[in-house]
Simulated assay, not measured.
Amino acid sequence: MKPPDEPLIRRALGAEILRRRKALGLLQRQVWERAGLAKNVYLRLERAERNALVHQLIAVAIGLDTTAGELLGGALDRIARGDVPSAGDEWRAAFGVE
Rank of each mutant, 00 (worst) to 15 (best):
M1V: 15
M1L: 14
P4W: 06
P4F: 09
D5P: 07
D5G: 05
E6T: 08
E6Q: 07
E6C: 04
E6K: 02
P7V: 01
P7R: 02
P7M: 03
P7L: 01
L8T: 11
I9T: 02
I9W: 01
I9G: 00
R10V: 07
R10N: 04
R10F: 06
R11E: 01
R11A: 05
A12C: 01
A12V: 00
A12N: 00
A12I: 00
A12H: 00
L13T: 00
L13V: 00
A15Y: 02
A15N: 06
A15G: 05
E16Q: 12
I17S: 02
I17P: 00
L18F: 07
L18S: 10
R20F: 03
R21E: 09
R21C: 07
K22Y: 14
A23R: 11
L24T: 08
L24C: 10
G25V: 03
G25H: 10
L26E: 03
Q28D: 09
Q28V: 10
R29Q: 12
R29N: 06
V31K: 00
V31R: 01
W32M: 04
W32L: 04
E33Y: 08
R34A: 15
A35M: 07
A35Q: 07
G36R: 12
A38L: 13
A38K: 15
A38V: 12
A38N: 13
N40E: 14
V41I: 14
V41K: 11
V41S: 12
L43Q: 14
R44S: 14
E46N: 04
R50H: 11
R50A: 13
N51I: 14
A52N: 06
V54P: 05
V54S: 11
V54L: 15
H55W: 14
H55K: 08
Q56H: 11
Q56Y: 05
Q56M: 06
L57I: 02
L57R: 01
L57T: 01
I58E: 08
A59Q: 04
A59M: 04
V60M: 03
I62K: 15
G63N: 10
G63P: 07
L64I: 13
L64T: 08
D65F: 10
T66E: 02
T67L: 04
T67F: 06
A68C: 04
A68G: 09
A68H: 06
G69Y: 09
L71W: 01
L71P: 00
L72A: 10
L72W: 05
G74S: 03
G74A: 04
G74L: 00
G74T: 00
A75N: 06
A75W: 00
A75S: 06
L76P: 01
L76H: 13
D77Q: 13
D77T: 12
D77W: 14
R78Q: 05
R78F: 03
I79Y: 09
R81K: 15
R81L: 11
R81F: 07
D83P: 02
D83R: 10
V84D: 07
V84W: 04
P85Y: 07
S86W: 14
S86N: 12
A87S: 13
A87K: 09
A87V: 11
G88P: 05
D89N: 15
D89H: 14
E90W: 09
E90R: 15
W91P: 04
R92M: 12
R92T: 15
A93W: 13
A93S: 15
F95N: 13
G96Y: 06
G96V: 07
G96P: 08
V97W: 11
V97R: 11
V97C: 13
V97L: 15
E98N: 12
E98R: 14
E98G: 15
E98F: 14
